[in-house]
Nucleic acid binder design. Structure first.
Length: 480
RNA sequence: GCCUCCGUGGUCUAGUGGCCUAGGACACCGCCCUCUCAAGGCGGCAACACGGGUUCGAAUCCCGUCGGAGGUGCCA
């Protein structure tokens, strides 16, 4: 039997980190087993419809290179793969379930339900639908429906006995049917709820392994009841632990946590994000941390998945991202960094050299501008910056150092790092001052920054002779 | 409240009865290198939630407690 997995997001307008990881695992598991990975869009909630949301999903999966073998746009033998286009199917199966006793039509109004729910809550109990409409004879129900009375179809959960299912990670999960509610399967608008659509579609699409978040763990016994009523073979379940913001909050866009797209926009590399989230809740069983997608396809194993939820540690992602940046070919770095250099207004200088200096210092691309913008415009700075104990400098030493450096730099005709370096070093040696006593103040004088990506010589080179001398003169004046 | 699940350093994790005076990574701290920063090298801080069992022996098995999460929608 070939493995068939699916990623079934609802189009909310962006890709959650958690959703991305679910997609990744479902993809990896399929690839690892030479199986089929399917994309299915769960858009049965019309009120939540977000224009363009499906495109965002396709785009995110495309960028991450999580290629689906079947799904919207690519086709397949089990389509359509968008639930809103499968409407008639659900109605058909819902009524089949009614015939088999696993479900029944319900005419209760929301008002009745809401007040009942409130009563339960007031008593501190969990609301359960009272099967009020279960006794309505089927032909009477059909008559009312024919007349146009609004209705839903509810699952008919037995009042007694147990419901259960088996999960690869969590083992056997069993609950008393008495704790289960008769949930709505088919809504008044004729579309199914998740509680029904997932069962029907997973069956119809031949899904063998269901990988989804643990938020479905407690409702899965109910889904199994449906499989049993239909007489369908159950898939293998793998419930994935949640990704948290901290110990008690889920990672969520609403709380301002980044989505997959947000991370890419900030300047995280897709490969780094994928690598990082693969390791959020899964371990290869050894100390290895760096994986390409292809390597993950090889290494992935359900046994390595953790049962407890994981906190999304952006600092570690940032570290991993900087490692990816450091390891990438220089030309690739240059191409990706260029827009950020443009933003900082520094492309008129030797950007290639700047990029060489920056590649090893870039953690996330959006951190580039604040690191290099001083090159575009000399910032105001406090002369206290001239004081550095280890360099043995202070404003007084700085004044001497700058006075020494200025004529030396003026005499450099071929403005290159080597020539600047040689001229400066010769003068320093002759003066009897220490390297740091001249180079530190000089760097401060032309950058205005306590720390810069490169030393005085690199900065002077990037700035060019005219700008370097202009800044130097102003800083010298500032010391008087 | 009720139901289900989870519980190794601040964080991600290795660990499936002896290899554990618990390993790796991020973060943090210190030192070295060095004209700053970064990188690199070296070192450090820091965990088996708690309490009972079982066993010659428990992070690993059992029970309880506590803590956390998920579910409890005509959302998914």
């Amino acid at each position: 039997m070939t493995v068939r997995t699916r990623f079934a997001p609802s189009p909310t307008g962006y890709m959650h980190i958690g959703g991305m990881r679910t997609a990744l695992y479902a993809y990896l598991f399929a690839k690892k087993n030479n199986g089929t990975f399917i994309l299915r869009i769960e858009d049965t909630d019309q009120e939540r419809e977000v224009p363009g949301a499906m495109d965002r999903i396709y785009e995110a999966l495309r960028i991450a290179d999580l290629r689906y073998d079947e799904g919207p746009g690519v086709g397949g033998d089990y389509g359509p793969y968008v639930q809103s286009q499968r409407r008639e199917l659900y109605a058909k199966y819902a009524w089949e379930l009614v015939e088999k006793g696993g479900a029944y039509p319900c005419f209760c109004t929301r008002e009745r339900l809401d007040s009942a729910r409130q009563e339960y809550e007031a008593r501190g109990e969990t609301f359960k639908y009272d099967k009020h409409c279960l006794d309505i004879p089927l032909d009477e129900a059909k008559r009312r429906i024919a007349v146009g009375e609004p209705f839903v179809i509810r699952q008919n959960v037995p009042l007694t006995g147990k419901a259960s299912f088996d999960d690869v990670l969590f083992g056997h999960i069993e609950v008393d049917c008495s704790t289960l509610d008769d949930t709505v399967l088919l809504k008044a608008d004729g579309l199914p709820t998740y509680n029904f659509a997932n069962v029907v579609d997973d069956h119809l699409m031949g899904i063998t392994h269901v990988l989804r978040g643990t938020e479905y763990l407690s409702s899965s016994p109910k889904y199994n009841l449906q499989y049993e009523s239909f007489g369908w073979e159950k898939p293998t379940y793998v419930h994935l632990p949640l990704i948290m913001k901290d110990a008690s909050h889920k990672l969520s866009k609403r709380n301002g946590d980044p989505t997959f797209e947000d991370l890419l926009q900030e300047g995280y590399l897709c490969e780094a994000v994928i690598n990082f989230i693969a390791l959020l809740g899964w371990s290869p069983g050894n100390d290895r941390e760096f994986f390409t997608l292809q390597e993950l396809e090889e290494a992935f194993d359900l046994k390595g998945i953790n049962k407890s939820s994981a906190i999304f540690d952006k600092d570690k992602l940032t570290w991993m991202n900087s490692e990816y940046i450091r390891r990438m070919p220089f030309d690739a770095y240059l191409a990706l960094a260029m827009p950020w250099f443009e933003k900082a207004g520094v492309v008129h200088m030797d950007v290639k050299r700047l990029a060489e200096l920056m590649q090893g210092r870039t953690e996330v691309f959006n951190r580039i501008p604040p690191m290099v913008d001083f090159l575009a415009e000399m910032p105001a700075f406090d002369t206290a910056l001239y004081t550095h104990k280890k360099m043995k400098t202070d404003p007084e030493v700085a004044a001497k150092a700058l006075a020494l450096a200025k004529p030396v730099l003026e005499c450099v005709t071929d403005w290159q790092e080597t020539t600047i370096h040689d001229a400066l070093m010769a003068a320093i040696a002759e003066s009897g001052m220490k390297n740091g006593q001249v180079l530190w103040p000089l760097r401060i004088a032309i950058s205005g920054r306590e720390s810069t990506p490169g030393g005085a010589i690199e900065i002077a080179y990037l700035l060019g002779k005219d700008e370097t001398l202009r800044r130097l003169e102003r800083s010298i004046a500032g010391l008087q």
